[in-house]
Write a protein that binds this DNA or RNA. Structure first.
Length: 830
DNA sequence: TATTCCCCGCCAGGGT
């Protein structure tokens, strides 16, 4: 290999020879990226799947180095070049894989570069070695990058940095982790103003914002957006239930489809089965195994609550082709190059077009290969969502990642980081911070508030020395107290974890974690599904639930309090169009065709709304009066809407409402007749006074307190303790509430409180979407119907409503009875 | 028998 390299070749020729040795030529977009890099540009490379992007950006700096070091005789692996490239990855698990992917061309070309990674689980000796001298290229996480910035001694090396490459930027964008990266990048650009910044991203709805948050709004060099691998072949289809007329109208587990899914799995070498929740993966795994007992050991389950050792085993099995199928959550959305995966199955609503695309891309993950995804509905109506997602993808309607606006908790953490890493002067750092997109409009007052906060804990914590983290000496801000430095380093980052408890075998192996609240409901002897196994609780000690293997049937499946994934607004919009098409008698594609008789029934008993209409169904039964509304705006918006409508209606007529929501609509229930028509005449759907009405209709203080835990933790008010020996959640929640109360009473102008209220509105209530939704309804024609029976659209809501009151057993009976009554009615009416 | 709610990160100097 070295012999070849000793010949005189141009840098590009060396790279082309490397490609030739792999049997192919570089793609056009890869060469374009190299060219842009050589010109000193920064930019963003995007495509739907990951193939080819890595080499496009990685070989930019490699070519640059070859240009500067044209003579292979002078290459000496014993003295590798100093730090040139930082590669940021959002996942620790990705660091090792990336290292392999990047090392291969270095070795192929015989380059003397030192390539290493550094994450929280790197060995202490490696980390210590790197603090003395960084490698030529370092792969690291956002958190570990911030940690590097706390070491003043590294500044000279970081000044020599030529480029930073941020992988999977779409994952970080729009999150506090992304903001943390933006601030770190501004720091690195301060050290070297010519620093090139490149991002790798999936295709998004807001690529320009994605680029600008990466390079800063006013980059010193030219910036580019490069589209990679355009012609990715993609096959998206749906598994239509064999007996569509017997397929349930409600529910979200969908195990009726297990036999059909099993026969799909059988047809190919390996399959990823995505489900939307962790408990769903456990249930599906069990059902698949029950259906095909011979697959024991050939299928597995993977989600975020499983122990790393379990997950590693599964990922390894996928890579080396030993596993036929893995049932997973979005824990396998990213990362690990599973070129072995032949097909992807999505069980349940995809919730967004970009997510569907991302998941499809997990199969056929090589240039030229076809990505295959099959959607499996868990209830009938979900098929419309798939039809809508396909349309959205076809029209290029992918979700935007909404950017955050000046999160001061992240800024406060960053300021302490910089104060530890050599200190700063106020004006200089302000200018640097303002060079990011997220903080470009930071005011002098806000900045001063952040400084006061880190220097003396703001205006209410002055008496407590532990909140005097940063010292101000003249115009220089710094940290010199050892304990503060260590504590800050241990708690760096913006991810705030939920309350959890380890699940361990008595023999010692850890299976993963569950929520305290789940375990607290179990008695010793209770059996539950976990990590694909049926286990029995033995005892709880030291924040650990000890279990043993069990036989029989589970008493429970853990329910983790995950984030709630509402339908994206792009998908909501596409869904409304699909229903409009149905109202016009258009049933395009297999999904819509399969639903024709269901929609006929909906139209017959009630109506199918056009996009400029709001469907309201009024039904009276033994339990009282019910109003079903169908804005199709996603669950979070509907929750806010339900509270808002109940609040506004009760101003017209004193009564109490109970409500339920799903991604499609809302049901309000009352013992009295619901004055919908009168309400509409009196501005039920007006945007006027919306904000005030929302504030009054929801317990926003309780929501704010919950949100404040995250802010307090990121801003450094609360330390969650050492990794591995965290303080209890109760303890953290209690101190977070204390801060919230103290600030509310003694320091009401505290900007973290402001931020907290904003985050509740924007993130928990999606207030902007809510406003759009009310605005749309205000302009819509009201389609009020009084159906003779519960309609297909209303049925799932009614079931949710019943669920609150009934035990699951009686609920099951009720649902089965309701469904069979409806089927009968449907047959008769056809 | 029926069951909705994702994911991600994290110290290091001085002592044996």
């Amino acid at each position: 290999m070295l012999e070849v390299n000793r010949k005189k070749r141009t840098p590009l020729q060396i790279v082309l020879d490397y490609f030739a040795s792999k049997g192919h030529k570089p793609f056009r977009f890869q060469r374009d990226t190299w060219k842009a890099y050589a010109m000193g540009c920064s930019g963003l490379v995007h495509s739907a799947t990951g193939s080819g992007k890595t080499l496009a950006v990685w070989l930019g700096p490699v070519l640059q180095w070859l240009k500067e070091n044209p003579n292979p005789c002078e290459w000496n692996p014993k003295s590798p070049p100093a730090l040139r490239v930082l590669w940021i990855t959002p996942l620790r698990a990705l660091a090792a894989d990336t290292e392999n992917a990047l090392r291969s061309p270095l070795e192929g070309m015989g380059l003397p570069w030192r390539l290493e990674s550094r994450t929280g689980d790197s060995s202490q000796s490696l980390k210590a070695k790197q603090l003395k001298k960084l490698p030529t290229a370092l792969i690291t996480t956002p958190e570990s990058l911030s940690l590097l910035l706390t070491h003043e001694s590294l500044i000279p090396q970081l000044t020599g940095l030529e480029s930073v490459i941020v992988d999977e930027w779409h994952e970080l964008l729009g999150s506090k982790r992304g903001v943390q990266v933006e601030l770190a990048l501004a720091r690195l650009r301060k050290f070297n103003p010519q620093l090139r910044t490149w991002g790798l991203s999936a295709t998004l709805g807001n690529l320009v914002q994605a680029r600008d948050s990466l390079t800063g709004p006013h980059p010193v060099q030219n910036v580019q957006i490069i589209e990679g691998d355009k012609k990715k072949r993609m096959r998206l289809d749906s598994l239509i239930p064999r007996k569509m007329d017997r397929f349930p109208w409600s529910g979200h587990i969908g195990t009726q489809m297990v036999p059909q899914v099993a026969s799909l799995i059988e047809q190919v070498g390996s399959t990823l089965v995505f489900a939307n929740t962790r408990s769903q993966t456990e249930i599906w795994y069990q059902h698949l195994l029950k259906h095909r007992p011979d697959w024991a050991g050939q299928i597995a389950v993977h989600h975020g609550s499983l122990d790393t050792s379990v997950r590693d085993w599964v990922e390894q099995g996928l890579k080396n082709g030993k596993l036929r199928a893995v049932v997973c959550t979005s824990s396998l959305d990213l990362g690990v190059d599973f070129s072995a995966v032949d097909q992807v199955i999505q069980v349940g609503s995809p919730k967004g077009s970009a997510r569907l695309l991302q998941r499809a891309g997990r199969s056929g993950h090589q240039p030229g290969a076809e990505s295959r995804l099959t959607f499996v509905p868990t209830n009938a109506i979900e098929l419309v969502e798939m039809a809508a997602a396909k349309t959205a993808i076809q029209n290029g309607n992918l979700e935007a990642r909404l950017l955050l606006n000046k999160p001061l908790d992240v800024l406060a953490q960053h300021v302490v980081t910089i104060a530890i890493g050599g200190g700063f002067q106020s004006d200089e750092l302000l200018q640097e911070v303002r060079s990011t997109l997220v903080f470009q409009s930071l005011t002098q007052e806000e900045w001063q508030w952040v400084l006061d906060f880190v220097v003396q804990g703001g205006s209410s914590l002055g008496a407590y020395p532990e909140f005097h983290r940063v010292e101000k000496k003249g115009d220089h801000y710094q940290v010199s107290i050892r304990k503060i430095i260590t504590l800050h380093r241990m708690n760096i980052g913006t991810i705030v974890s939920d309350a959890s408890m380890k699940v361990k075998y008595m023999k010692g192996n850890t299976l993963g974690t569950v929520e305290e609240s789940f375990v607290s409901k179990l008695k010793p002897g209770d059996r539950f599904l976990f990590a694909g196994k049926l286990v029995e609780l033995v005892l709880i000690r030291d924040n650990t639930a000890y279990v043993k293997r069990s036989k029989g049937v589970p008493d429970a499946v853990p329910r983790w309090m995950g984030g709630r994934m509402p339908l994206s607004s792009e998908l909501s919009q596409a869904l409304r169009f699909k229903i409009q098409e149905a109202s016009e008698g258009q049933f395009l594609g297999s999904e819509m065709k399969s639903l024709q008789s269901l929609f006929d029934l909906q139209a017959k008993w009630s109506a199918l709304p056009r996009t400029n209409e709001l469907l309201i169904e009024l039904i009276k039964d033994r339990s009282g009066y019910q109003a079903f509304l169908f804005p199709f705006d996603g669950r979070l918006v509907h929750e806010g809407l339900a509270a808002l409508l109940a609040f506004r209606l009760s101003r017209i007529q004193k009564t109490t409402f109970s409500m339920a929501c799903n991604d499609h609509g809302i049901v309000l229930q009352s013992p009295h007749e619901i004055p919908i028509e009168k309400g509409i005449a009196n501005g039920l759907f007006t945007t006027e006074g919306l904000q005030e009405d929302i504030q009054q209709s929801l317990n926003s203080t309780e929501m704010a307190k919950r949100q404040f835990r995250h802010i307090a933790r990121i801003a450094g008010l609360i330390q969650s303790g050492l990794p591995g020996q965290r303080k209890s959640t109760n303890h953290i929640q209690a101190s977070s509430n204390l801060f919230f109360d103290v600030f509310t009473e003694y320091d009401p102008s505290n900007l973290l409180l402001d931020q907290c209220r904003r985050e509740v509105l924007e993130q928990q209530m999606e207030v902007n979407r809510l406003r759009d939704s009310v605005d749309r309804m205000e302009q819509s024609r009201m389609l009020i119907t009084r159906p003779p029976k519960v309609t297909p659209l209303a049925f799932p809501l009614l079931v949710d409503k019943l669920r609150e009151r009934l035990s699951s057993e009686t609920l099951g009976e009720r649902v089965a009875r309701m469904q069979s009554e409806l089927e009968k009615a449907a047959t008769e009416s056809n």
